[in-house]
């Protein structure tokens, strides 16, 4: 599903060169639930951003769903993200001026489907995370766990093959965290969605199929 070959990411300023990722080789097969762990600043989020085409590597090649995305034009990259990927962020990143339903609907805005169909799909996604009755609420009216469930609904509404989750339970207490993990695991097991999750939480990582560890930009386990 995802293949990374010799991925390097170097941040350069006039005086300093910082290597964030160093020769990362990784293969995530279809349907796998992979977690990435490591101390702060080890390059976990950078790796996830590169997998999600949110950032470009300094060197190396990425194959996602069998396609090398190295030479993609910006519009193709956008379409790829829209159709194949779903994102879940630690701080939810919901748009405060949009209702819960409008937030969930957002990825579908960039597809050519009718507004009626968009509404139906968004309502279904919300129902699948148990928030059908909150569709007219605004993010500020929800708890942290509810916000993350809305974010999951937004990530799955377009039926992506891969979900990339950056510390999805990082801002939640353990009960809420377990609830979110439950939804992700169910998604992985029942829908076969490939999930790559960055986490600090060993307990959450143990619930996934495989765990890799990064240290100073290199894969150590």
């Amino acid at each position: 599903m995802i293949k990374l070959k010799n991925i390097k990411k170097v941040y350069r300023t006039k005086t300093i060169e910082t290597t964030a990722l160093n020769d990362i080789d990784l293969h995530v097969p279809k349907g796998e639930f992979l977690s990435i762990m490591g101390p702060s600043g080890c390059g976990k989020s950078t790796l996830l951003n590169i997998i999600g085409l949110l950032d470009a590597p300094s060197d190396g090649n990425i194959l996602v769903a069998g396609k090398s995305i190295k030479n993609y034009a910006s519009k193709e990259t956008s379409r790829f993200r829209n159709e194949k990927l779903g994102f879940i962020f630690q701080s939810f990143h919901l748009i405060p001026d949009l209702s819960v339903l409008d937030n969930v609907e957002l990825p579908l805005l960039y597809r050519s489907i009718s507004s009626k169909e968009r509404r139906t799909l968004a309502e279904e996604a919300l129902a699948s995370v148990g928030l059908a009755n909150r569709k007219s609420h605004f993010p500020s009216q929800l708890s942290g766990g509810q916000k993350q469930r809305v974010a999951i609904a937004r990530a799955i509404v377009g039926n992506p093959e891969i979900i990339l989750a950056d510390e999805p339970t990082g801002n939640l207490d353990s009960v809420m965290g377990d609830e979110i993990m439950g939804i992700l695991t169910k998604l992985n097991k029942e829908e076969g969605t490939t999930i790559v999750m960055v986490t600090h939480d060993e307990r959450m990582a143990k619930k996934t199929d495989r765990l890799i560890r990064l240290y100073d930009g290199s894969q150590v386990a």
């Binding site: 999600g52 956008s78 379409r79 993200r81 990143h93 957002l106 990825p107 960039y110 597809r111 377009g158």
Partner: peptide, 16 residues
């Protein structure tokens, strides 16, 4: 700007 980031992450291109 973070709204723009989210929109782009979910598939909005520059024209959008």
């Amino acid at each position: 700007s973070s709204e723009i980031g989210v929109r782009k992450a979910f598939g909005a291109h520059r024209g959008n």
